Amino acid sequence: MSPAIKPRLRRTLNGLVVGITITALSGCGTLFHPERKGQLDGRIDPVVAIANGVGLLFFILPGVIAYAVDFSNGTIYLPGTQTAGVDAMPLDENMDVAALEQLLSEKTGKRVSLDSELLLVEEVDSLDEALALVRMSGINDSERLATM
């Protein structure tokens, strides 16, 4: 090998190792599917899991970090398992709590109690504000929100 080729080969290999390490450290699902951020759970995407597993071949740490990043962001999960939506419903100002619970129960198909700590009912000034609250909740349902 000539002396000029050695530094070029070394730079190429160094660049390749740095690129693979950065990809593994940032999490493959986060790079491949950033739109999935915020999913809470669901079925694991085998392509992302295998890509993260490749990081385990280049030492344990990059693969473990890739899995941790993807699980914490929710990008390792397949889409479509969690949904959120906004229904605009004008409410009568004279509506009492029982009537509101009945209306919400009919819309959701489940029994709704406004005393539940898991339920948040909030009055908003516009549909844009309601959509912003859904986006901030971390649940992504782009198909339904796009049709609004």
Rank of each mutant, 00 (worst) to 15 (best):
Y77R: 02
E122S: 13
V134G: 01
D92H: 04
Y67C: 05
N52I: 04
I50A: 13
G109R: 04
L16W: 08
K110C: 02
E35Y: 02
V97Y: 00
Y67R: 01
N73Q: 12
P79E: 11
P7L: 06
G80V: 12
T108Q: 06
S142A: 13
V121D: 01
V54K: 01
D141A: 12
L104E: 10
A24W: 04
V97N: 04
M148Q: 15
V112N: 06
L56V: 11
A99S: 10
P90F: 04
D41I: 01
L145R: 08
K6M: 09
F58Q: 13
M95H: 03
L133K: 15
Q39E: 11
R36H: 08
S2M: 07
I50L: 11
V124S: 04
R11V: 04
R135S: 09
L104Y: 06
G109D: 02
E143F: 13
T81K: 04
V64K: 06
Y77T: 02
P3E: 12
L31Q: 07
Q39A: 15
V124E: 07
D125V: 06
V17A: 11
E122K: 15
N73G: 05
S72D: 12
P34S: 15
L131N: 07
V97Q: 09
D96M: 03
T21I: 09
C28N: 07
L120C: 04
R36K: 09
E101M: 02
Y67A: 11
T83G: 13
V48D: 02
I65C: 08
N140T: 15
I139R: 07
R10V: 13
S137L: 02
M89P: 00
L91E: 01
R10G: 05
N140G: 13
L16F: 10
A130K: 02
G80A: 08
R11G: 14
T81G: 14
A99Q: 13
Q102K: 14
L118E: 05
P79M: 06
A98L: 10
M136Y: 00
V124Q: 11
I60E: 05
L91S: 02
P79F: 05
S137C: 05
P90I: 12
T21N: 09
R144A: 15
P46S: 13
M95T: 15
L118I: 01
L40T: 14
A84R: 03
I22T: 14
L16K: 08
E143I: 15
R111V: 11
D96R: 03
I5M: 08
S26R: 07
M95N: 02
G55N: 06
T75A: 03
G109L: 03
E122I: 13
I5R: 07
S105L: 03
A84F: 00
S116T: 08
G27T: 11
D128K: 09
A51E: 01
H33E: 10
E143W: 06
G27N: 11
T12K: 04
D45I: 08
P7Y: 07
F71Q: 03
S116H: 04
V54W: 00
G15R: 15
I50S: 07
T81H: 13
C28A: 15
Q102E: 12
T75F: 00
S116I: 01
L133E: 07
A49Y: 01
P90C: 02
G53W: 01
V134D: 05
A146P: 00
D92P: 00
V97P: 00
L13D: 01
